[in-house]
């Protein structure tokens, strides 16, 4: 089975706050095959970044409650020894963040930061690590890497910094790369450079990739599979084609209908999803999307507001969480 490189079972993440418990992720089950690119799409507060942080082990254990299982190549990340987990971070799995400026240390040369990353995981001399750092910068398309390796982050442009972040993430050859909004902070023309670079590198290395984004165009370009999150839940999962051409959950349909497209009709009517994203402290009863759903009339009774639907099969390799699929009147 190819779908078992990363397996997440019933992941629950919550943050106790003064206002109540924020249930950021509520029972997420997901698997990613080796060498595949999965895109997680969702709006702010949908739980997509928290899921990534839970996989990486970046959530503060004192302020977070995490339940469930996350298996990376058979190793249970939530149950294993913290020391072992730390050693996996950077070598087995790595992450790229949205804002490269705040993820690089401003006081250290990019080379020194790369060298540090190498030497944490490999027993090599400083000189060897520096060679690896320069090779890493060259691989991500930084011109003149022998000189650039001694630059400070502020001397690089936003696109170059993101390239450095990618070089750093890949320097120990991780099997899993998580990119959290990797292009959002960049200019359009630079975004295209970075998505191209990530796809090229993935071709070369076979790294499994999870791309977290709100940009449906980036998803269409990069992903094999898409997972749509809403209110801390997976509401639809499938191949990119299935989700884009046969969206089976009203939220996904709404999302696709609300983006203006560069290739659409000039006076294309935008059909926004009414209302606002749900509260994660007091989520709506039943289906978490039902207060904004315009298709609930098709479901008999008050099923949508009382019973949370399961993630059910919508087609081959395609699942969605909606009563329409089981109870709907066509």
């Amino acid at each position: 089975m190819s779908h078992d490189f990363l397996q997440i079972n019933d992941l629950r993440v919550s943050f106790p706050t003064d206002d109540g418990v924020v249930r950021a992720v509520s029972g997420l089950t997901l698997s990613v095959g080796r060498g595949e690119t999965l895109a997680i799409v969702g709006e702010s507060g949908s739980g997509k970044s928290v899921t990534a942080q839970a996989i990486m082990g970046l959530l503060n254990p004192l302020a977070t409650e995490i339940d469930g299982r996350i298996l990376l190549d058979g190793v249970d990340l939530l149950a294993c020894d913290p020391e072992h987990r730390r050693s996996m971070r950077g070598s087995a799995m790595a992450m790229i963040f949205q804002d490269p400026l705040s993820s690089l240390h401003p006081f250290y040369r990019v080379g020194d930061q790369l060298i540090e990353a190498v030497r944490i995981h490999q027993d090599v001399t400083k000189k060897e690590a520096r060679t690896q750092a320069i090779d890493g910068l060259r691989r991500v398309g930084i011109p003149d890497p022998e000189r650039r390796v001694d630059d400070y982050p502020h001397q690089l442009s936003g696109g170059m910094r993101q390239r450095v972040m990618i070089a750093m993430a890949l320097i120990n050859g991780p099997q899993l790369l998580i990119a959290d909004e990797p292009t959002t902070a960049l200019d359009v023309t630079v975004q295209a450079q970075i998505t191209d670079l990530m796809m090229d590198l993935q071709q070369q290395t076979g790294t499994t990739m999870i791309v977290i984004t709100h940009d449906l165009g980036v998803v269409a370009e990069m992903a094999d599979h898409v997972c749509v999150m809403y209110g801390g839940r997976v509401v639809e999962y499938g191949t990119t084609d299935a989700v884009y051409y046969r969206p089976s959950m009203p939220y996904t349909r709404g999302l696709l209908a609300s983006v203006p497209r560069l290739d659409g009709a000039y006076d294309e009517h935008l059909d926004p999803i009414p209302g606002n994203p749900p509260s994660l402290i007091r989520p709506p009863s039943g289906c978490v999307f039902h207060p904004r759903c315009r298709e609930r009339e098709a479901v008999p009774g008050d099923l949508c507001s009382t019973v949370e639907p399961d993630l059910v099969t919508a087609g081959p390799d395609h699942r969605a969480r909606c009563h329409l699929l089981t109870e709907g009147t066509p």
Binding site: A192, L216, A220, D241, Y244, R261, L262, D263
Partner: peptide, 11 residues
């Protein structure tokens, strides 16, 4: 041309 369109085949 740099902006990806939300449509896998068209893109």
């Amino acid at each position: 041309s740099a902006i990806p369109v939300p449509d896998p085949v068209a893109q």
